[in-house]
Computed example of a mutant assay.
Amino acid sequence: MKKYFALETKEREADITIFGDITSWPWMESDVSSYNLSKQISMLDVDVINVHLNSYGGEVAEGLAIYNCLKQHMAKVKTYCDGFACSIASVIFMSGDERIMSNASALMIHNPWTYTEGNAQELRKTADDLDKMTQLSVNAYKEHVNISEDEIKQLLDEESWLTPQEALEYGFATIVTGAEAQAKYSQSVRKSVLQKLLRQKSDPKQKDEVPEEKENLMHLFAGISQKEGKR
């Protein structure tokens, strides 16, 4: 039997390795299908699932099925970008409660595409369907990121490669491994908090509507500053 992915369990943890294309027609040993993987995920009786990714992506439906299966599992999910997490693989990456990148990895996000043929009406419908497919990925991203939906769509339109530091700053990742990356982590968070405080200061209406948020941001900024002062 072909091995489409690696899944190992030890004590109360499971390790899943997805180092290949995500497809409903797995031909190569590295190919991953949602049927094979999701079925085994649902049967796991563990507390933690570690998902290691190095994939150029693949079929939207297959990736979304894996994403949702991981999200629905009772275990804590940790996703690791061990190389590239591109296209629909980046959506699977977003299933993690912790989303970990090394400082030598990258995410790539873009709009879905397809082949089509037919008359003008059929072509227009295909374009509308693609917009809906795009929105599904946007929904997965915006559950965690700290940028707006319009900014997410702009990144998709631009077929964006995200460095670990960019992924961390935007909220795609929660941790970047490596000493240098950790130093940039605090700087990125501090920049984000400062930008929010400045926006509230320049917008009196926003300032009046969310005073408790401003207070929380001030406390967070103070904590970050103290932490950086101790480094």
Rank of each mutant, 00 (worst) to 15 (best):
L123V: 08
S42M: 14
M218Q: 13
H144I: 02
S192P: 02
I49P: 00
S186P: 00
T79R: 05
S33Y: 03
N139W: 09
E122G: 07
G96Q: 04
A120N: 12
V48R: 11
A179H: 11
E143H: 01
W161E: 06
K76P: 00
V210A: 15
E149D: 06
I41A: 04
T163I: 05
D97T: 06
A181I: 06
N119Q: 05
L136I: 06
L123H: 08
H110A: 12
L156I: 01
D203T: 00
I224Y: 08
A65N: 14
E143S: 14
E143N: 03
D82G: 06
L168G: 03
F19A: 15
K207W: 11
Q226H: 12
K39Y: 11
G229R: 12
S33H: 00
D97K: 09
Q195I: 00
T17H: 12
L70Q: 02
M28D: 12
I22S: 01
E11N: 12
I109M: 14
S90F: 04
L70W: 07
G57S: 04
S160N: 04
D45C: 05
S55P: 06
R199Q: 13
V91R: 05
I175F: 02
K191N: 15
L107W: 01
F172W: 08
S30N: 14
K76Y: 10
G58N: 04
F5T: 04
I152K: 07
L217T: 03
M1V: 11
D97G: 10
E149C: 06
V176Y: 08
H110V: 00
M108W: 14
T23C: 10
M133F: 11
